[in-house]
Structures are given as C-alpha cells and as structure tokens.
Design a protein around this nucleic acid. Structure first.
Length: 603
RNA sequence: GGGGCCGUAGCUCAAUUGGUUAGAGUACCAGACUGUCGAUCUGGGUGUUGCGGGUUCGAGCCCCGUCGGCCCCGCCA
C-alpha cells in the first residue's frame, strides 16, 4: 500500500469497506480507556480514526501515546457510521476509519499556542508570527492562503485568456527620485553604487509596451521602505497590467472583467458591470475622500444655497471668502456622547485645520438642540430640513471653511459616524472607479509634484492649462476603490517624448536630473512608443477585503511586524565583517543584540 | 518623528487603597473510563509579573528609563 491512499477530507459513505492509508497531523485524541478516537487532519480535512484493542492491540497501544500535532500514518478500513454517530460538522462525518496500524512519522512538541481557530485568533500576533508555520497549520489561515491562490489564479487565467503576456521584471533595479523611500542593495562589483528594489515595475512595463508586447501582466512583488499600517507591508504584491493602443475606458473595462472573475473565484456575488464610476471631484464633494465607501449613505450635503443670505456671521463670512458650508446627517446618532462629538470629532476637525465643528442634535420630539440654531431664519431651517432629510434622532454635523479643508474632515467624520451607527455592512462589496484626478498637487515646500507619477497623461482638454494653471489640469488617471479602500490605480501614459520632456519642465525637474534618472525612458519614447496605459491592483488588499480580513498580514504567509521585522527568521540581522567589506560598506552604528537581534541602536 | 492601547503560568485573562502564600479557565502531566467528536471524571501549579533602576517597612500595582507587539497621524509618486 502506498504512503497514503486518500486525504483526510476525502472519504465518504460510498468508500465503506475500503482498505486505506491516511497521513496527517493528530488534531485531537479522545482516549476512553478502551476505545481511542484520533482525529487526523491535513489540508483537506479531518477524518476520525478509531482504535479498538480487539482490532489491533499494537495499534491501540501506539495510539495511546499519540499527542497533538504528531505526524502519523494510519492504516485501516473505512466504516460507515450509524446515523446517530454521524458528525455533520465535517465532510467525512458519515464515516470513520477502523484503524489496524499506526506509525508515528514524527513526534511534535506541544504547540506554544492552541491551533484551533476559535482560540488562536485571540492569541497575540507576535507569538503567531514567531511560529508562523504552526499558525499557518490552522484551518482559517489555510483557507486565507487558498483564497489568495484562487484569486490570483483567476486573475492570471483571465489575463491569459485576454491575450496578456506575463513578463518578469528585475528586482534589482534603479532608485527613483520621487515616491516612497527605496530599499537599497549595494553593488559588490561597482563600489559605492546601489541597486534599488522596485516600488513598482512602472518603467519596465512601459518599456515592454515600446517593445511591442502589447498586453503585459505580472503578479509583481513591490518594495517600499515606509512606515507600516494594517494594510501596508514593506513588501507587497501587485497585479500589474499595461496595454497598448487603449484609452482609459478600455483599461477600466478590462479590469472590470478581471474583478468579476476574481469575485467568482472568491465565491462572492458577481458585481454588476460596468463597475460604477465617478470623478474625483464628485467623490470629494459627496464623500470627502478620493476612496469613497459606498456601503452606506450619510453623504456630504452642500448648504451654500441654504445659507446664501444668512445672518449667522460664521457661515456668512466663510461663504463671502469663497468657502463652503457643508454638512453630514449622521442618521440616528443624536444620542452620541458629548465626548464623541465635542472632543473626538471636533478634535479631528481642528487637526484638519477647521475652527471647530457645529452640530444639531434632533431630539425624539423633533426639536433641534444646538448652539447655533438660534441664528438661523425659518427659511434656513426649512432649507436644512429639506437638504439633509432631517428626522427625529439625527445628528447634523457642519463644517464651514475652504472646500479643501471642510470636505476631508466631513469625509472622515462620515466614516466614524457610519461605524458608530453600525450602518456599514461587512458582507457587502461596493466597487467604484474614481476618475479625472488632478495631475499635480503642491508638496510641503509648495513645489508642484505629480499626484500619480510623472508619466501620467493629462486630459486632452486640459493640456493648454499645463503652464498657466497646472493645478487645474486633470489626469487620465483612475483608481479602483472597494468599500472605502484604494485597491489600485493607473493611468494613460505619455508616449510622446517631447510631451514627456514638457511635463518634466512643468514639474521643475532640472535637466541634469531628468537625464540621469529618465534618459532611458525618454530615449525609448523616441523609438516608436505606442499610446499605452495600465494600472496596478494591490493583491494583498484585494484578498484581505474579499476574505473579510482586517489586516493584510492575515493574507500574507510570512508578514513583517510594524517595525518591518520578520519574527520567524529574525530578519533583519547582522552580517559578517567580510560581507560588509565585499560590498564596500562601513557601519556608522554599532548593531546590538537586543530585541532578539533585530534591533540596531545608534551609538 | 508624534499620539494612543498593551505586556502576569505554554495560551487567554484576574489580582480591592501598595499588604504578607500571585489566582481562574484552558493547555500540559498522571490516573480512571468501550461511542466520543470543544469527550468526561479525579488529582497535579508548571511563574525572572518583558527588562533595568528608583520610592517604600513592603511593589504585579507608584515613578523614571528601556525592549517588544498592535492601532492611528505624519510618510506611502
């Protein structure tokens, strides 16, 4: 008989009578003194194996010494269970294996934490990460990894069917001037020079379009040396796409199809295609963010009309100065605590540069309780009522300032209010495209920088504003958003070398820097670059959202901690002096062994 | 760089105002048990209260420092 004849998730009533061999981990031992039950587990499922001293005294004896997580091979005969003994919780619950022999292939130490999902999910994450190979043994984690596999496989298959070619681009590449901090790799051969790990395969995929590949896709690893969040890891995976001879609609339609396939692969309801679209301006006006969560209402309402002639000086002054008065109706939150409204949310408004946050609590009897209502005319009250659909129990939150300040604040409060009111369903998936982003923004120093990246093409009708009013120029850029999370984004690229040079000039990049950083791309554009565009989707975030996870660490096999430490491998770590000499590096700090060897402390 | 939460048995947590021998559940170990499937019953505490220092007659608890984990802001073209 072979090592194993079946998996632990395979046997059914129809297999009764079969002689089988199963291999796996001991999930649990229930020793009744006479009878012993061992649940044997592998990736495929759980099978109950019964040891009776009358069947085989030797096997029964060996089973007695089995402990959790031992790796064993069991031979026996499949037996149907009487109806009252069927276990409906597991797929193999209608059978059991009458065990005639058991071989311990490997013993196991007692796991440092329970491997049962129900309990393991409460265990501190650093312990799980230190013993990730045990954590990944859990059903829940295996399900997440399987979902990831199916989702990425569906995306690959889809793009293959659509004629895309998967091309691998270098991991050792060149540092880019803008964007995130690069991970650097010193060159041994050329002293003092460094490779950078790619933040994205952006320029390579554009060069592949110049090369005539026409349709490119890659499940690409990307690296960014920035601080982490629940949805950000220093290395992450993108579904990276680029297409030639397309416009923005073509790219979005292609990705619509992919997302529909991916939803099916994740066994989730199909979204209606085409996925909805809105412009960046509309997203900001209605939701106060460029990644709107469409799972609930509480949209931002403009009250410029209502208060156009108001006697309330605070609003009047703002409107006169070209500002806006906006509000959100936090439905049903009139009972929100003073702390929530006047400390937490008002504090948030102040952080966002607002003077404060006005509000109205609508009492159960319909009366308005508010420090500011007394300044409103009857017409203004009626206007508010109408514009915000005010009902008993509502909480109205006002922001009056420049639109760029008021909208983001209300956008954040809308999310908090939605969560507080439990108005955001967890099992609903609402996609939207956000299009027509601004091409540029001002950074801290007031310098013009690309919102997306410097290869993004502007909308044709805005090109004439490039030099005169660059901040008004909209980009042929689009983000795909799911449930308030930015899944990915892309753009139509500039394919005309003269235009690309013009763009660098508008950005104020010195000629020398353009040459040293982008000469390869500019030269490539000189040799017949097709019009092209594409996008990249954050694979980890996509899988996280579709599996209901709260952190991308839940869908990455071996993630890093918030300090970018790998607790399992204990990386980063010190290296030998010889290794440093080879790469011409001398340390300016003395590494210390504290914190498990991963912490380096300045002298 | 900044704000917040956390660190007590293998795990999850408790421990009154600073009080004498640091507990519970579970895991684990031993014994019992022939139909369990989160088995059950009996017995057993296995501890550098993250680490270092301070205050105190006395510190898990207070103070200072430090290490680590998580969430957020900044940052992430």
């Amino acid at each position: 008989m072979s090592m194993r004849t079946h998996t632990c998730g395979e046997l059914r009533a129809a297999d009764a009578g079969a002689q089988v061999a199963l291999c796996g981990w001991v999930d649990s031992v229930r020793d009744h003194g006479g009878l012993i039950f061992i649940d044997l587990r592998d990736r495929y499922g759980l099978t109950q194996c019964v040891f009776d001293p009358q069947d085989s005294a030797a096997a029964w004896d060996a089973a007695q010494s089995c402990r959790s997580e031992f790796v064993v091979r069991i031979e026996g005969e499949v037996r149907g269970r009487p109806e009252e003994m069927v276990n409906v919780k597991i797929g193999t619950g209608e059978i059991e294996v009458r065990s005639l022999a058991i071989e311990v292939l490997n013993k196991a130490l007692t796991p440092p934490f329970p491997l049962e999902d129900r309990e393991a999910e409460l265990v501190s994450e650093d312990l799980r990460l230190e013993y990730r190979y045990l954590d990944l043994r859990r059903t829940g984690m295996q399900r997440a990894l399987m979902a990831r596999h199916h989702i990425l496989q569906a995306a690959r298959t889809y793009f293959d069917e659509q004629g895309f070619v998967e091309v691998e681009t270098p991991i050792l590449t060149k540092s880019t001037p803008e964007g995130a901090r690069d991970y650097l790799v010193p060159s041994r051969v050329i002293p003092g020079m460094f490779f950078a790990l790619p933040q994205a395969p952006q320029q390579y995929k554009q060069l592949l379009m110049v090369a005539g590949l026409d349709r490119y896709v890659q499940i690409a690893r990307c690296f960014r040396d920035e601080d982490l969040r629940a949805d950000r890891q220093p290395e992450f995976t993108q579904i990276d796409v680029e297409m030639s001879f397309v416009d923005a609609d073509d790219v979005m339609a292609m990705v619509d199809g992919m997302l529909a396939r991916v939803m099916a692969a994740a066994e989730l309801p199909a979204p209606q295609l085409p996925l909805p679209r809105m412009t960046w301006r509309e997203a900001m006006e209605r939701f106060g963010t460029d990644k709107p969560d469409l799972r609930f209402g509480m949209e931002i309402v403009d009250l410029g009309e209502v208060f156009s002639a108001t006697a309330f000086k605070v609003f009047a002054r703002v409107l006169e100065a070209g500002g806006v008065v906006k509000a959100v109706n936090a439905k049903g939150l009139a009972q929100a605590t003073i702390k929530t409204v006047e400390e937490d949310w008002t504090g948030l408004a102040r952080e966002g540069g607002l003077g404060g946050l006005a509000y109205i609590r609508v009492q159960e009897d319909g009366t308005w309780k508010s420090p500011i209502v007394k300044f409103f005319s009857d017409a203004e009250r009626a206007g508010l009522q109408e514009a915000l659909g005010i009902e008993a129990g509502d909480l109205i939150l006002f922001a009056a300032d420049k639109a760029e300040k008021a909208l983001p604040v209300l956008g954040r409060i809308r999310l908090l209010a939605g969560a507080l009111a439990e108005a955001i369903p967890a099992d609903v998936f609402r996609f939207t495209w956000v299009t027509d982003f601004p091409l540029f923004e001002r950074n801290d120093e007031g310098r013009l920088v690309s919102v997306h990246h410097p290869f993004t093409a502007p909308l044709a009708e805005d090109v004439e504003l490039l030099e005169t009013a660059p901040e008004k120029v909209r980009a042929q850029a689009y983000d795909i958003v799911l449930n308030g999370t930015e899944l990915g984004g892309g753009s139509i690229r500039i394919h005309d070398p003269k235009f690309q040079a013009r763009m660098f000039k508008v950005l104020g990049l010195p000629e020398a820097e353009v040459q040293s950083r982008f000469s390869h791309l500019l030269r490539a554009l000189e040799y017949g670059a097709p019009p092209h565009g594409g996008l990249a989707i954050g694979a980890d975030r996509l899988v996280m959202l579709l599996t209901g996870g709260h952190s991308i660490r839940d869908v990455i096999a071996f993630p890093k901690t918030q300090k970018s430490v790998d607790l399992l491998m204990d990386a980063p770590a010190q290296v030998d002096d010889k290794q440093l000499r080879d790469i011409h590096i001398r340390l300016a700090v003395t590494p210390t062994a504290e914190g498990g060897g991963a912490a380096a402390k300045p002298e």
